[in-house]
Design a protein around this nucleic acid. Structure first.
Length: 421
DNA sequence: TCTGGGGTCCTAGGACCC
DNA sequence: TCTGGGGTCCTAGGACCC
């Protein structure tokens, strides 16, 4: 996100209004969409429990167990919730009560005691995710995955190739394609989505959020001053809670104020790369391509305990959980077809301070035993003088692996067996 | 009411090599 | 004995995103 902006090609000055700039801009005109599923997890749950439609519902807490699935017990309200979960998604009815994703469930219970709580079922959400992405791909194939519930779509080729047939205005054609996409998603899943269409990813991401749910917002450069500049700087993808707080200290709250700020001031406070990016972003400039394929960089598993564990008194339990995390990372690697070289340990203390240690091996592996040993070495390098809240294991420096041989499978099962002795 | 889990990218210092 | 840069890899932490 904070990648260094690319230098202008060919030494052209990008002075606005110049002949060459105008020509380049016309030639390089892109039509980029951002599609965001509306309250995705909660909406999938409403397909399963249609009787809950119109009521405040939140998804979160512990993952759904097999027992939950089969039980016909009444769906609990937030009122009596106790535990460490957070809200993953809230329906718009629940959001109206002041709760939102990321909020602790204990806090949400105070604000919306009557809201219904459903456990997350990620397997089901992944199924719907594949379904909606396939539906979009059938209309517009140039898709960039941005997680389970959103994508970027490059409509440029579609809009340009239909130039003769459709409406004369290319933006009207882009809008028509977006409407087709929304219909395709609804037909395939029964779910609604919001779409923004603009000249780039940065603006589209903002635009898709302007008219939720079910919205379609088309913006061109001419709309930036009126539609984008009044928004809080935090709306820019890449400006988070820390950066927006620091901007506020400089008296900069909106994107427009950021656009008017002296770039040198931004660079002084945020560094050459990030400061310069902020300036460009506030002017709605972004030339990142839609990336249709990418390889994973790391695979990890972590868990927050229901109660903080004592490194000595709860040693056995910690050890079992630790081994289990390693086994799951190994399984994930095998399923996805990767090996990795760098094993990482993550540990969060009861005071929320988080530390990491990692170790790079001579040769890549996906063996649970090897991961467990390397992670164990990492564990020896961290102070164990406080209660522990979270434990995580990560594998990085990934490379594609050969398919597993029968011998691998055998040694794996032996290792896994010894891990649990 | 303390704050999930799975990721990416960036920075910065030190080791090590040329 | 001291003094250089540049490049790459490793490690730790942190911001940010979904």
């Amino acid at each position: 996100m904070r990648a260094e902006r690319k230098a202008e090609p060919g030494g052209f000055s990008r002075k606005e209004g110049s002949f060459w700039y105008t020509l380049l801009a016309v030639m390089a005109q892109r039509f980029i969409a951002h599609l965001d599923m509306d309250a995705f997890y909660a909406s999938v749950e409403l397909l399963r429990y249609p009787q809950l439609r119109g009521r405040p519902v939140v998804v979160g807490g512990r993952r759904r167990s097999a027992v939950d699935q089969s039980s016909s017990a009444a769906i609990p309200t937030l009122r009596h919730y106790s535990g460490r979960g957070v809200i993953t998604t809230a329906t718009y009815e629940a959001r109206a009560l002041g709760v939102h994703s990321g909020m602790g469930l204990m806090k949400a219970a105070k604000l919306a005691p009557e809201a219904l709580l459903l456990p997350a079922d990620f397997d089901e959400y992944r199924r719907y995710s594949r379904r909606f992405k396939d539906a979009v791909r059938a209309v517009a194939p140039e898709i960039e995955d941005r997680g389970i519930d959103e994508i970027y779509i490059d409509l440029t080729a579609l809009v340009t190739s239909t130039a003769e047939e459709g409406a004369p205005d290319p933006w009207a054609r882009a809008r028509a394609v977006a409407i087709d996409i929304q219909r395709a998603v609804r037909d395939a899943t029964g779910l609604s989505c919001s779409i923004g269409v603009t000249p780039n990813k940065l603006l589209s991401k903002i635009a898709s959020d302007l008219d939720k749910p079910g919205g379609l917002t088309v913006l061109t450069e001419a709309d930036i001053a009126v539609r984008i500049w009044p928004l809080p700087a935090r709306k820019l993808n890449g400006i988070g809670p820390k950066a927006s707080a620091r901007l506020e200290n400089l008296g900069i709250r909106t994107i427009g104020e950021l656009a008017r700020a002296d770039p040198l001031l931004l660079i002084e406070h945020f560094g050459r790369s990030y400061g310069a990016w902020m300036h460009e972003a506030a002017h709605g400039r972004d030339d990142r391509a839609v990336i249709t394929h990418s390889e994973p960089k790391s695979v990890s598993r972590e868990t927050t305990f229901e109660n903080d564990l004592h490194p000595v008194r709860d040693r056995e339990r910690l050890s079992r959980i630790f081994t289990d995390l390693c086994v799951r990372v190994a399984e994930d690697l095998r399923r996805k077809g990767y090996v990795g070289k760098t094993i990482g340990l993550k540990l969060r203390y009861d005071n929320f301070k988080t530390i990491t240690r990692d170790r790079t091996l001579e040769a890549p592996t996906r063996d649970a035993g090897a991961i467990r040993r390397a992670a164990g070495e990492c564990l020896k390098r961290v102070p164990l003088d406080r209660r522990i809240r979270l434990l995580g294991v990560r594998m990085g420096a990934l490379s594609r692996s050969e398919p597993e041989t029968a011998r691998d499978a055998l040694s794996r099962s032996e290792h896994t067996a010894t891990l649990f002795e």
